[in-house]
Every structure is written in structure tokens, then in C-alpha cells.
Computed example of a mutant assay.
Amino acid sequence: MIGSVRRALRLLEAAGSHDGGAPAKQLAREAGLPLSTAYHLLRTLTHEGYLRREAGVFVLGAAAGRLVGGGLQQKRRGMILDSLARLRDAVGAPVYFAVYREGEIEVLGVSASEAAPACEEWADFRETAHAHAVGQCLLGQLDEKTRRDHYERHPVEAVTPYTVRDLRSLERRICSLERTRPVTERQEYALGTVCAAIPVATGDTAATLAISLPLHQEDRLLTAIDQLRIEVDTLLNTLPLSISI
């Protein structure tokens, strides 16, 4: 074990235990370090942004905050993937969780298995929102101005022979969507695959949960998406979908 790393971490822990910061002598005492060693490590930690010196005391810096934030983000991601796995097992199909953020579609989680493989992303999901149920469901939650901006950056183009062919047809479909009904598509994004998506309430962020099935299981699609909706309603209080997405 590297002793200097251990000593630096003890200093960070000591500094983090004081909301208003603490002087070097107090941090050295709490970390069990000689004052000269503590001074050297404190200078290094301050230079790297893990600590910040203010009015003679040391407080945690931005770099330390990023470490904490990254750990929390990873924990939330793990919770989301665990929840998606539970949904996958309940409906017997791969489950996708995606949001529309900063002008782009972002898939935050996919849970699949050998028995329920996910659809291969052979064309960029961000550029083909018009062609898959995930994208159409998200577009349907946006206002017209935001959608128009999206179309300008990602024009409507055929991905398969079944893809909606033009913007006017797509807008007619988007405007006819009913919030209580799932969005479905048949081989519009990937040949041999059918998909369905439902909107998810996450505050101001457009979000969706979706499933996909091979074409020969198309007769299961609506039953599976209805089951997904039931499972989501049951698990909504435990799903961390609205936290820092």
C-alpha cells in the first residue's frame, strides 16, 4: 500500500468532517500526521483542486465534489439498471430507458438477457428518432418548436423500407399520439424487430420506457407493453428514474 495516498485520504476525510473548514494543525492532529507531512500533502491537495484554502482553513474543493458526485451518479445508474432488470424479467422482453436532454436522445439504460436480447443499435439512435418507438415517444412529449429544431439537425430519412418517409407524415403521427396509448413501430428501425414505448413521468424531462421483440413474436407486443405499464406503476416509487437523469 502507498503510504502517501493513505495519508492524503485521511486528510481529505478530516477536512470533509468540518463544514466550515479546519486549519492545518487541526487536520494534522485528526489525521494522525506530523505537521510537516500534513503541510506538504495539503499543498498538493490544494494544487490539484481537492482542497481549497480560505481564511486560513482548508475546505473540500471542486475536485473532491466531482469524486462524490461521480460515486452518487454510479450508484443511481446501478439502481436504474437493477430496476430495468426487474421489469425485463416481468415482461419477458428487453427494456430500454431513454430521455430527451439538451436536444438529443440519450439511452440511459438497457436491460437484456440471452433469452431476451436487445435490438442492435446499427444506426445511431440520436439521428433516427423518427424511426423507432423510443424516439417517437420522446418527440411526442416535446413542443412543436423543439421538435422542429430536432428535425433540422436530424432530418427524416428512410432507415428501412418501412420507415416513415417524410416530415409531414411523421408530424401527423406524432400529433395523433394519445398519452394513454403506447407508441409502436414495426420494422421501421430494424428489419425483423417490433418495438413499443410508453412515456414516463420525470418532471420536466421527456422520458420513456420501451421494449422490443422479434417480428415472429409481434402478437406479444401490446400485451408485454401493457404489462410493463402495470409493473412501472407498481415500482414507480422505487425507480430512481427522476433523479439526476
Rank of each mutant, 00 (worst) to 15 (best):
I2N: 13
G3T: 14
S4M: 14
A8V: 11
R10K: 12
R10P: 06
G16Y: 00
S17N: 15
G20C: 12
A22E: 04
A24T: 09
L27Q: 13
G32K: 12
S36W: 03
A38T: 10
L42S: 06
H47Y: 14
H47T: 15
G49S: 08
R52I: 06
E54S: 11
G61N: 03
A62Q: 13
A63F: 08
A64D: 12
R66W: 06
L72S: 05
Q74F: 11
S83M: 11
L84G: 08
L87A: 09
R88N: 09
V91L: 05
V91T: 01
G92L: 04
V95Q: 00
V95Y: 01
Y96P: 02
F97G: 12
V99I: 13
Y100V: 00
R101K: 14
R101T: 12
R101Q: 14
G103Q: 05
G103D: 04
V107T: 07
L108R: 10
L108T: 04
A112H: 00
E114S: 10
A115L: 15
A123F: 04
R126G: 04
E127I: 01
E127F: 00
T128N: 05
Q136L: 11
C137M: 12
L138P: 01
L139G: 03
D143R: 04
H150P: 04
Y151R: 01
E152F: 14
E152S: 15
R153E: 05
V156T: 08
T160K: 00
P161R: 08
T163F: 05
T163L: 00
R165T: 03
S169W: 02
L170P: 02
L170F: 06
R172H: 07
R173V: 04
L177M: 08
R179L: 12
T180S: 15
R181L: 11
V183Y: 00
T184E: 03
T184A: 01
E185A: 02
R186T: 11
E188L: 00
L191Q: 02
G192R: 01
V194C: 07
V194H: 07
A196S: 11
A196W: 05
A197E: 02
V200H: 02
A201C: 06
T202P: 08
D204N: 14
A206V: 03
S212G: 07
P214K: 09
T223P: 08
A224S: 13
I225D: 04
D226Y: 05
L228H: 10
E231H: 07
D233Q: 09
D233I: 02
N237Y: 14
S242Q: 09
I243Y: 14
S244N: 13
I245V: 12
